[in-house]
Each structure stands twice: as structure tokens, then as C-alpha cells.
Design a protein around this nucleic acid. Sequence first.
DNA 1: CCATGATCTGTAAAGGTTTTCATGCGCCCA
DNA 2: TGGGCGCATGAAAACCTTTACAGATCATGG
Lengths: 319, 319
Amino acid sequence: MAVTIKDVARAAGVSAATVTRALSNPEVVRPSTRDRVKEIAASLGYHPNRAARGLITGRTGNLGLLVPDLGNPFFPSIVKGVQARAHEADHAVFLADTDEDPAAEAGLVRKLAKQVDGVLLCSPRMAEAELRELAAEVPVVLLYRRIPGVPSVTAEFLDGMRQAVSHLVALGHRRVAYVAGPRSSWANRERVRSLRAVAKGKVELVETGNVAPQFEGGVSVADRVLAERVTAVIAYNDLVALGLLHRFAARGVGVPGDISVLGFDDIPLSAMVHPALTTVALPKELAGQAGVDLLLRRHDKERRELPTQLMVRGSTGPA
Amino acid sequence: MAVTIKDVARAAGVSAATVTRALSNPEVVRPSTRDRVKEIAASLGYHPNRAARGLITGRTGNLGLLVPDLGNPFFPSIVKGVQARAHEADHAVFLADTDEDPAAEAGLVRKLAKQVDGVLLCSPRMAEAELRELAAEVPVVLLYRRIPGVPSVTAEFLDGMRQAVSHLVALGHRRVAYVAGPRSSWANRERVRSLRAVAKGKVELVETGNVAPQFEGGVSVADRVLAERVTAVIAYNDLVALGLLHRFAARGVGVPGDISVLGFDDIPLSAMVHPALTTVALPKELAGQAGVDLLLRRHDKERRELPTQLMVRGSTGPA
DNA sequence: CCATGATCTGTAAAGGTTTTCATGCGCCCA
DNA sequence: TGGGCGCATGAAAACCTTTACAGATCATGG
């Protein structure tokens, strides 16, 4: 059915060993032979069977990517970055969506483990101990989560939060709400920590309850935010911020006239709504690329922290 | 390194053949042996190496999924459906994003072909002849494209368009614009065809030029639409419709007061904006699931056409 | 007690590739 | 002329699993 290395060998009048050498180790085979083999391989449309290769080399040329929810536009952007970089490195990508279920994560990774050279874990929600255990079994790179000893790609949350708060302070805001995301989210814990550090002595901080990191989460908490009589609100992420905007609009609350709204992530959507959302842009495609680089180079204890950038748009204004 | 079938065989005091039988063909092995083997396999955490299995059985337990642009929220929804169904059937999913590049499609499929049991092609842009050629090499199921002889999952565009036009007619609209998507898109051709059929004798139709199926496409064509002095506009998809809304808002054109806007797809985003977008909902997760079923032959049909549903929201009103 | 058949289990081959080791060949230098 | 060396290539083993086939065990009926 499919064309195998033997077909090429026969057509070229050489052994299978020579074919594989000509293709993957060209300098050890005589130029004339090498060229003939390459030409015949190309004309027959031969591509090595990766499963068979993986069996003997132990490397599959595949990698796994786990995301909590593809419905959150933050993650497709990361997936695109991973895809692009992986393809450059001639790797294919297994994608798995956990549907925000922390219990499903480990199982999915272990199932994938045999078929991949490593796994990228995007904002994994599972407990640190379990994650550490997993990292001992499979090469793992964390995206948007940091654990000592495990390679990771994160962003400068502290700096991003500083930009956000400075922006609000400059606009005269003195009492600001933060809408927290899932407790299990490292990114949320990190944002809270950064915000507290940055807010100290500058603005009064009102923290409101943990919501799902989705549009509905924002909608559900909007009225509570209003009741706090703040002049600005920072949301866990853009989706939650959009939920806030939606509910504010429905209640006739002006943005940014009555209240300023600030998000986190900079998903494409944020620039499309009215008013457009002011938000702290996190590297997405870049993070995906960096993650692949870390995974494929296999520097054991490497870590990257990428820059963030405040995008000022229509949803923030003077207090 | 990893635990293989030999480890299990040794621990259980049987041959490898008995282990594989106990696990995948349990009825042919004596119950006492079978239970012991199963128990030991579980305690050792043994899972068969799928690459090795695939080598001999010819079936990999993987499938491929090709999408034009993960940045369009329409596609992540489909991906989620595919994932869910594939996972139920114990299959893993390779994802590839073509970045709207028709030339990349065939190459990506062929690269994946060796490692998968089949490929789902989501709204492929490539020429019909090439697609047909590809379908002869690899088991293929088309999502949102139809070609005779190739299994496919589509939606009832004609009925959806009828719902849309009836809605507009009932609201008193008599002159309606259509903003066309990419010429290479089968979905676009199909929508045009349906719209013309449905509009005949009911509304005057103004077709405006082909735009990229993205937010920017809608923004770029908005002024041209206004110049046509229509009372309503139907966009190729929701993203384009959102682009229209954005530009209309920027120019102070009231929606639905001055013009009604209608989209296609019903991406999650459409319900989040203000005014919320009236749109024809296409099955997304369901389409993904149906595609997997077709590919794995769990369904004896070769073709499925799923129902559509008009979602009336804030962006349409009386003419 | 032997022949027969039914059940269960082990052996070996197969699948496509890479890699180690061995072979053959031509060449240089003594 | 022959020993030694380097280079290009081939043969065979290895990776892990499944499956066709053969062998072993056991009970049953004659």
C-alpha cells in the first residue's frame, strides 16, 4: 500500500541501510549514490514511517499540548504559536482539551506520553505534587505556571500589573476592585499577589469572589462590583471583563464614564467590542513558540519569563 | 525505561502472547490467568505502545484534524466536538492549522497520513480535484464542504437562509446586502446560492465583494454597505458581521435603528457584544462529533446534513 | 488405556525503520 | 608485494506488539 524504505532500496539498487543513511545522515554516503537515492525517494513520494522510526530511536517527532478550554480565545492563540514552531521543527502536535477538569489532566497526559517526545501543559490546574510526579515520568514544559525544577514559560505579571495600576492611578482612581479567577489557577494567585504588592499605598483594593474564567463569570459578579462603589475594576481575564461590560451596559452603567474596566490577556475579541477593552497583553503565540523550544532542546531547568504590555483602549477613563 | 509487555509477561510468569490476549481478547484465555495478568498489568501501569501496535495492525488509534484558522472562534468549537468524540472512542487527535493557506493543506494532510487512521478536513479551501485525489490516498471526512463520493458533514444552509430572510421580510426589509466571504470557500458559494434562491421575489439583493472571513473583512466593507442604502445586511459569517457592527458604531450608525445586521455561525462571541448579534446558528460541536463517527465508520451513512437555527438577538429590528 | 477433540498457551514471524558490526574494496607506504 | 587504513555499503539485530500456527494439557468416550 504505502511506499516503504524497501521499495526505495529496490528501485535504487541499494540496501535499506543506505537509503536511511542517504536521507538522515547524508555525509556518510557517496555523493553519487546519495543523490540517486534522494531523487528516487522523492519521485516515489517516500516518507519514513514515523511510528517505526520512533520504535527504534525512542523519539516520535510528536508533541502533546494540553489546554484547559479551547473556547477561551486565549488558548487558540497559544495553540497557533505551538503549531507554527512545532512544524518548523518537523514535529506534529497532539491537542487535548481538558474542559477545565483538573482530574482529567494527568490521565490525558499519561495516555499521550507514549506517543510524544514531550508535553506542553498550558495553565494546568492540577495540584503541584501531582504535576511534579508527572514531570518525572514525561518531559514536560509548563505554560503559564511555574514550579521549581520544571521548565516553564510565564509572563511578567508583576510588571503588567504595575502598568495597569499606574494607568488607573494617573486617571485618578483610588478605589479599585479585582475580580478573582479560579482558586486552582496559578495565574490568578500570581495576579492577586502582584496586584496587592503594586496597589499598596496607591489605591484601595477590593477583592471579589472567585468566578469561572468565562464571560458568564463576569456577568455574574458585575452587580456585586457595582455595589462596592469602586471607580475601576480589574478582571482576572478579558473574558470576565467582557462579562462585566455586558452587564454594565444592560444596567445602563456607563463605561468608562461611571466605571473603568480593565482586563488581562488581550484576546483578539477585546479590540472588537464597544467600548474596546483596555487590557494587559500577555504573549500568546510567542509563549507557545518558547514552550516548544524549551521542550525540544531539553535544557533541564530552563525558564523563560516574557514581557507584558498594557493596551490602553476605550474602557478606561478618568475617575 | 517504560514498562513493556515483556515486563508484564515476566512478572506474571506467562508469555507476551498471553498478555496481549488477556488484555485485548480476554475470552480466549483462562479466567484465572486472565485476571492475574490484568492485575499485574494494572499494577505496573502498563499501556501497550501504540506505535508498535499500529505497525502490525495498520491502525494507529489517532486521527488528524485540519482547520483553516483557529483564531476564528467557529473552529475551536468544532475542535472541541471532535476531541470529545474521539476521546470516547479512545482516539487521540492531531491538530493542524493551515493559516488560511490552501497551498499548505495537502502537504499537511500527507505528512499526517502515516500516523492516523483518517483525517477530518474542516472547510478545506483546496481545489476539488486535489481534494478528490487526497481522498483516494487517505480516509477523509469533509466538514462544511461537500463533494460527491467523499463522506461529509454539512448544515442545512438553504433552510438557515430561509429563516434569516423570512425574519428580515417580516421586519419590513426589502433591500438587503450580502457581504461575501472568500471565493475559495464552499460555504460562501453555498450561502450565495441559497440566498439568491430564497430572496427571489421577496427582497432585492445587493452583493458586495469578497472579503477575508475575519473581523477586519467586515470593517473594510462597512462603508461600502452603507453606501448601498440597504436597510439590512447579511454577512458571510459572524466575524465579518462583528466587523460591520464595529465600523457602524464608529460612524454613529445605529443598529438596528439605521440598519439591521445578521451573521452566520453563532460563535460564542456573538452573544457577548452590544447589540448582541442575530445570526444563523450552525452545529459546531455536533458537526465535529458526526465527523468522527463517519471517519471511524460507526455510522453507516456517508453524508450528514445537520439542522440550522436562527438566533434572533438585538442586531435586527424593523426596517 | 488409547484415540480424539477441546482448551489453553507458547513460539516465531511480521510490521518499517535505525544502528551496530562486519565485509569488501581501493589506496598508500614500506 | 603485502600489511594496514579509510571509506562505502550490506547484513542483521533491535524496538514492541499482534497473530498464525504449533504444541501441550486435560477430559471424555470407546
